[in-house]
């Protein structure tokens, strides 16, 4: 059966969902700023910002996560609590790029040699309801990174905005478990036709021209290229791009201790921060922005592809949109492909 959900029933549907699940969706913090957050009330859900600042990775891999709490006495320590998932989770309104990004991180966190329980427990208990992108932005280039505005892979339920209703495709076992939900109606042929039209229209909108084919091999030959001397210059070394990136997954673990009681916390870290690679001796193997920018791009387009066969970029455009100095990863790829630095200093738009 083909489903749809009328928008007038949307809040009721969310209310039902909240009774059985922990729900995570984009919430607007202030005009123009949205993040994925745990939802308390249905009206908090706001799907208007196509690319929320913080991506859905926050749901599995929060910026700051208490791993456990501990207490120390004079001679021994004891762990007093451990983080656990209590209820099944639903992510609603993640875009196809964010969903692909989850699978990219998953390859690192849930591997053959090691399983990161903090990530895995959450991932296992989560149903993903994706929202298709009818209106991609000009900074979207998912079609260049192997995705697309209607990419369904990784989604349990795929949702298409038809104006007055959402067309719903229940794609996996987890998704099909929702088929008995109240408010789900049968979609008619007109709905299905409209959904197809929207998909066709959107597919022409995202940029396919970013030359990622063979990028890994090209970068192999470019480790000491003068390209890096120039490309990093405008980067001021903040963590915007890496923190907002849905595939960046570096973290730092610290103990926060007061009076022999404390917690072990893991926090996002960024390879663009000088202290990221600073060693105890005081030596820093990535002493300048040149090495740090190289690391950021090499990890996405060389090291990760070597390990997992795909670039670690989903073309969401966050790093372009929110960079304080307009470092544009698309242009970085173009220049790397052309192996040139000429023209990097700006051009007429």
């Amino acid at each position: 059966m083909k489903f749809k959900l009328d928008k007038k029933d949307f809040e009721n549907f969310l209310n039902d969902l909240l009774e059985t699940h922990d729900l995570f969706a984009p919430v607007q913090l202030t005009e123009g700023v949205s993040v994925f957050k745990k939802i308390e009330r249905p009206e908090e859900v706001n799907l208007n910002q196509l690319v929320p600042q913080k991506s859905a990775k926050e749901v599995f891999f929060p910026q700051s996560e208490v791993m456990f709490r501990f207490e120390m006495t004079k001679h021994q320590g004891s762990i007093v609590s451990k983080h656990q998932i209590e209820r099944e989770r639903v992510i609603l309104g993640a875009r196809p790029c964010d969903v692909e990004a989850i699978s990219i991180i998953e390859k690192v966190f849930v591997g053959e040699d090691y399983t990161d329980l903090y990530f895995f427990e959450k991932r296992k208990e989560t149903t993903i309801i994706t929202l298709a992108c009818n209106q991609p932005l000009t900074t979207c280039f998912c079609s260049s990174t192997g995705g697309g505005p209607f990419r369904r892979e990784g989604s349990d339920i795929f949702m298409i905005d038809l104006g007055d209703s959402y067309r719903l495709e229940l794609l996996t076992q987890k998704g099909k478990a929702f088929s008995k939900k109240r408010f789900f109606k049968e979609a008619n042929s007109k709905d299905i036709e409209l959904a197809k039209e929207l998909e066709e229209k959107a597919s022409h909108k995202t940029d396919r021209s970013i030359p990622l084919e063979g990028i890994e091999k090209r970068l192999d030959l470019m480790v000491e290229s003068p390209f890096w001397d120039r490309i990093h210059e405008k980067c001021i070394g903040c963590g915007v791009c890496t923190f907002l990136c849905p595939t960046c997954h570096c973290f730092d673990i610290t103990d926060e201790v007061v009076n022999l009681k404390g917690q072990r916390v893991r926090n996002w870290d960024s390879c663009l921060f000088p202290i990221y690679s600073l060693e105890t001796s005081g030596h820093n193997p990535r002493p300048t922005g040149r090495e740090r920018t190289r690391q950021r791009l090499m990890h996405k387009f060389n090291y990760y592809p070597k390990n997992f066969g795909k670039v670690a970029c989903v073309g969401c455009g966050r790093c372009i949109l929110f960079c304080p100095v307009q470092f544009d990863i698309r242009e970085a790829i173009r220049y790397a492909s052309a192996k040139r630095t000429q023209g990097m200093e700006g051009r007429p738009r």
Binding site: T139, K234, L321, Q326, G346
Partner: peptide, 13 residues
């Protein structure tokens, strides 16, 4: 200098 986004300029060297 100009770069890729409207409403913006970019630092150039």
């Amino acid at each position: 200098g100009n770069w890729t986004l409207p409403l913006r300029t970019t630092p150039v060297f």
